[in-house]
Design a protein around this nucleic acid. Sequence first.
DNA 1: TATATGCGCAAACAATCACTTGCGCAAATT
DNA 2: AATTTGCGCAAGTGATTGTTTGCGCATATA
Lengths: 106, 106
Amino acid sequence: MRRDVYQGIADPTRRAIIALLALQAMTPNAMAEHFNISRQGVSNHIKILTECELVKQEHQGREIYYTLEIKKLKEIDKWLEQYRAIWESQFNKLDKVLSNLKKQKK
Amino acid sequence: MRRDVYQGIADPTRRAIIALLALQAMTPNAMAEHFNISRQGVSNHIKILTECELVKQEHQGREIYYTLEIKKLKEIDKWLEQYRAIWESQFNKLDKVLSNLKKQKK
DNA sequence: TATATGCGCAAACAATCACTTGCGCAAATT
DNA sequence: AATTTGCGCAAGTGATTGTTTGCGCATATA
């Protein structure tokens, strides 16, 4: 069983949960109200998110508030970094082509 | 069958393929040499990457060169954007705490 | 103390996954 | 013309997924 950030964000419902938790900490029941799946379905996703360390829990009485571990998302950002350089240089190339076309028009 | 970028990058072998193709276009056979799985195993991944539009093909005789569609990775970057704002503000808060501690020491 | 509520665990399900092996087609080499 | 090479397609395998329903344990309310 693979448990990493990439796996964590692979499912659309999990990305929706992440979006919710970015706004505020929430209990599983509160999250479930936003989706068409059962409370337990949501809990299963939370379990995976917890295992990926994308989410942490805060017990409060019998309720459990889940919070987003935003720094885990930084991992993806770091992975993207190596490719950002490439697409930026590609954009610059395109930019050059365009400005050359402009010059030719003149 | 879900076919989006997030699914595309969910598998470690596929991320490795992406890394290879970032350096240069390659045939499936060439890629397979880098991994411990069969040529067909690699081809299965390529198929998924193609369906996610993370990869495009260029036929050249009987060989097929695959190239990385870097702009598709930008989609992830765009998704991350909303969270970047959050972790940056969190970092600034931490920064404040640290500089306050420093002041107190003085 | 009895009952209701919030939650995780466990088991079950079909669907999808990552792989493999075997095949056949088309391009290249002999 | 015969053989080799590069590739995708198809079918098969066991493992993992997303989901559900039923359970039991705590905490809260009556």
